[in-house]
């Protein structure tokens, strides 16, 4: 599984885009420029990007309440994302959805979800459709450790195992569902163990190592595309920031957070690139600068966009 230089640089850029986008959102939140709530993906970038790197552009994903990372990794336009967060008519959902409901049909992104585990049966259904239509597409279903305790997780994986559906379930185990540590919410030690019950492979990866994530997901995607069925991948990672906007993080220690920050997936990938490729520091620096520019443009686009018209309140209720 050789990764081309072009692909490696793409992966790096997407991770940086996610990191910088989220930090910008955090800043806007603190300035009260973003309404509602937001769940940020800082620290988990390698999972979304490593996974989406294994997909074709027309493959599908389903995402979660913590969805900005998946959305960017699948190729979304940062301008339309930022505009959505500012509630603007130019946003992906025309200002109707906000952070938890971003969908991008053009990149096969079936959407974030405000309901924990809401996307799991939906991904399963998309995969069922691919099987029925024989369109050779694969669906990646992202969800958290907490989501794996909803009933639909079990119902969905059973169907996918039974019908050998072309879907890859990626559980982002960031050790907590809101304040609840996995050890207090989940009867098994590793969520990947549950794959056995549904007759599919269960794989554990270091979620902060983008190359490892990519390899595991690529294998699962290839397998799914060959018609051999679903895989459950558990990606062990950590969210650096609070669960949502106003989380004092009383349920974990600052030391634990520092430990995980040392495992920064972006820094690790930089090291990997330095050690195993001829990509230079300058090239990476240039990407960082380019992304900074991109984020600023997205922000300017969003802030200068119009709000939806109140008269259009009832538009889009029905198709």
């Amino acid at each position: 599984m050789e990764l081309s230089k072009e692909k490696l640089l793409w992966m790096y850029q997407k991770m940086v885009e996610i990191r910088q986008f989220e930090l910008k959102v955090d800043e806007l939140f603190k300035k009260n420029m973003i309404w509602g709530t937001c769940h940020l993906y800082v620290g988990e970038e390698a999972t979304a990007v490593g996974a989406c790197a294994a997909l074709n552009p027309d493959d599908y994903i389903t995402s979660t309440h913590r969805g900005h990372g998946h959305t960017i990794a699948k190729g979304a336009d940062l301008k339309k994302m930022m505009a959505e967060l500012l509630g603007k008519e130019t946003g992906y959902c025309k200002g109707r959805g906000g952070s938890m409901h971003i969908v991008d049909v053009s990149t096969g992104n079936l959407g974030a979800n405000g309901i924990v585990a809401g996307g799991i049966p939906i991904a399963t259904g998309a995969a069922l459709a691919s099987k029925l239509k024989k369109d050779n597409k694969v669906t990646i279903c992202f969800f958290g450790d907490g989501a794996a305790n909803e009933g639909v997780f079990h119902e969905s994986l059973n169907m996918a195992g039974l019908w050998k559906l072309p879907v890859v379930y990626i559980c982002e185990n960031n050790l907590y569902g809101m304040s609840n540590p996995v050890s207090k919410s989940t009867a098994v030690k590793d969520i990947a163990q549950r794959a056995e019950s549904y007759n599919m492979p269960g794989v554990i990866v270091d979620g902060n190592d983008i190359v490892e994530v990519y390899k595991a997901v690529k294998e699962a995607v290839d397998r799914a595309r060959r018609g051999e069925g679903a895989t459950l991948i558990e990606s062990k990672t950590y969210r650096w920031l609070g669960h949502s906007k106003s989380d004092p993080r009383v349920y974990r220690t600052r030391e634990e957070e520092e430990e995980w920050k040392k495992k920064d997936p972006i820094k690790r990938f930089e090291k990997y690139l330095e050690e195993t490729t001829d990509i230079t520091k300058d090239e990476l620096e240039e990407i960082n600068k380019k992304v900074e520019q991109e984020i600023e443009e997205a922000y300017q686009f969003a802030i200068n966009s119009p709000d939806p018209r109140v008269e259009d309140l009832a538009k889009y209720v029905y198709a």
């Binding site: 309404w35 109707r96 906000g98």
Partner: peptide, 16 residues
């Protein structure tokens, strides 16, 4: 309330 899901944009949300 209007017969719509609650929108995100604050003006729309208020109007709902």
């Amino acid at each position: 309330g209007k017969n719509v899901p609650i929108p995100y944009n604050p003006q729309l949300e208020r109007a709902a």
